[in-house]
Structures are given as C-alpha cells and as structure tokens.
Design a binder for these strands. Structure first.
Lengths: 151, 151
DNA sequence: ATCTTTGCAAACTTTTTGCACCAAT
DNA sequence: ATTGGTGCAAAAAGTTTGCAAAGAT
C-alpha cells in the first residue's frame, strides 16, 4: 500500500491544536481535557479515524474516557463546525477536522480510502444543482467502488 | 390492508414477477414461498424499501417470515444479481430490483429520496476512472445533500 | 434422500440516552 | 454557584450467525 502517500506534512501540530482550542473558547464551549485529547488525536491522526479509533487514541493518554463521551464530544465539535464525519457505507463513519476538505473514494474490495480534491466532484455538484436544485454535501458521503489494484 | 386490496396486483407486475422467478430457476436457486413473496414485495413497491419494510410487506401475506430470513434472502438474491442495495448514510440501507437502475439523492433535512438517471453520474465516473483508475459503483451509495425545497 | 432454506434466539456493531456525579467557568 | 460535561450501564437500531427443524428438488 505504498501508493497515494500524498500526506501533507503537518506545519505544527501544537500550534494547530492551540488554534482549534481557541475556537472552542471563542464559541464559549468548555475546554475539557477530553476535548483537548480528542482534538489532539484528530490533529495528529494520519489515518481515517472512526469513533472507536479516536476513543482508543484518547484512552492512550486518559484511560477512563468513555466511548460515549467521544461520541458526545464529536457531536458538539461538529455542531461548532470544527469536525465533520463521513459515511463510508456499511454503517461505518469516520471523523476529521473540518479544515481537511477532501472527498473520499472507498474501495469495497480492499477497504482502501483514497482522498481526492473537491474539484473532482465540482462538476457533479453543479449538474445536480442545475438539474434538480439539489445541493450536495460532498464531504458527508463516500464514493464507493473498486480501486485500480482491485479491478 | 384488506384482503381485496392485497390481491390487486397489476398484471404487468405479475409478468415481471414470473420473469424474475424464472431467473431464480435458471440459476438453480430454490423457489420458496418466502422468496416469491419478497420478490413480489420488491416488484410491487413504490417506495424505497428497507429490510424491515420488506419484512413487513412479506409478513402481510406470511406472518411467520422472520426478519433474519429476509436478510438472508436478500443476500442470496443480491449474489444472484437480482437485487441491489444502496446505503443512504446513517446506517440505513434500501433494496430494489437490479433492473431498476438509478442514482439516489438523499435530502438530509427532510429525508426525501430523489431518483436520478445514471447519466447524471457518468461524468463523475469517467473522471475518477481517468484520474485514479477508480471504478465507482454508483448504485451502491447515495449522494447526500439538501433538496430544492429545504434549501 | 439430499441438500438448502427457514424460524428462532442470541450475538454483534455502531450509536444514543438516562442519570447521578464531577468539573469548568 | 451554576451550568455543562463525563462515566457508566443500558437501550436502540441494523445486521449477522448457530442450530435444529422444515421444505424444495
């Protein structure tokens, strides 16, 4: 799986985390150790993280944090516009910071998630808008199919 | 639902059901009353049917059919190429006959499902193929967003 | 007669909720 | 002090599975 490693090098995770935590403050949301750890996990994560992946990451630092708390925190962070989730089909969802904007292609054979720029969906977006008045929410669903290797 | 109502099945639906049942025979799959009732429900359904919707429809005629049987039957019919399912996000899936080919737009505000012709996705399909070698499986995922009325 | 399908119960996965306690402001 | 967050247990919601009995060929 050596392909598609166009991962960005984080500028400065610590700074980024501080910025995001500031946005919590701005919105008068409480800054708790759980939220800090959760945002830290999101900032530091290279992979696509499910709720239980995130719980595991948070629990590495704070073992008592409960999965239900992770869900509740994610929901609040999502309402605050800091986090988004994407449905990958078959019930699973993954979470990431809202400023990481990209579309997800999911291979149904090998499970690989390919990130592609929004631009690849812009044509679809305008077609559906024009023809049906439908505004797609491109980061909220994954495009399912088969990747080049599995074909 | 009265009995008279339940028996009022349009003649072309009867034909269509017979054709599909024939395809079961062709594939050496057993023709059971459950499968017949399930396919009948699919042929007659106007709405988008979840597994439990289908179970309810089947149970109108055969009360003892269990939901797990519906799932197993759907799986077999899907392997046989007669049925497909689509993930609508948030865990729900809907089922329909394979010859009903269309894409689904799901409004996240009101839940409405809009059916659009494949053609609207063909552009996306070729773009993703060309750029990433990725073959989308367009009938397997829904496009989420907001419909004209909810905007 | 054989091999598949079914009903049932129970497990599983992911997410949500009620409640009493604890923590951030 | 007040309001909101958290741990825990338990419940939803959707789907899958093991097994013995029933059914299709």
């Amino acid at each position: 799986m050596s392909r598609a490693e166009a991962e960005k090098i984080p500028i400065d995770d610590v700074d980024r985390l501080a910025q995001i935590v500031d946005r919590l403050r701005t919105k008068s949301l409480r800054i708790t150790s759980t939220r800090r750890a959760l945002l830290s996990a999101l900032v530091g994560s290279k992979r696509h993280m499910s709720a239980s992946d995130l719980a595991a990451a948070v629990q590495a630092a704070q073992p008592d944090v409960h999965l239900s708390t992770v869900y509740r925190s994610l929901e609040i962070l999502e309402q605050a516009g800091l986090v988004d989730h994407v449905h990958l089909g078959h019930g699973r969802a993954i979470y990431h910071l809202s400023d990481e904007l990209h579309q997800h292609l999911v291979c149904e054979s090998c499970g690989t998630v390919i990130e592609v720029p929004d631009e690849d969906l812009s044509n679809l977006a305008s077609t559906l808008d024009r023809r049906y008045g439908f505004a797609i929410r491109p980061h909220h669903f994954a495009v399912l199919g088969r990747c080049a290797e599995c074909r």
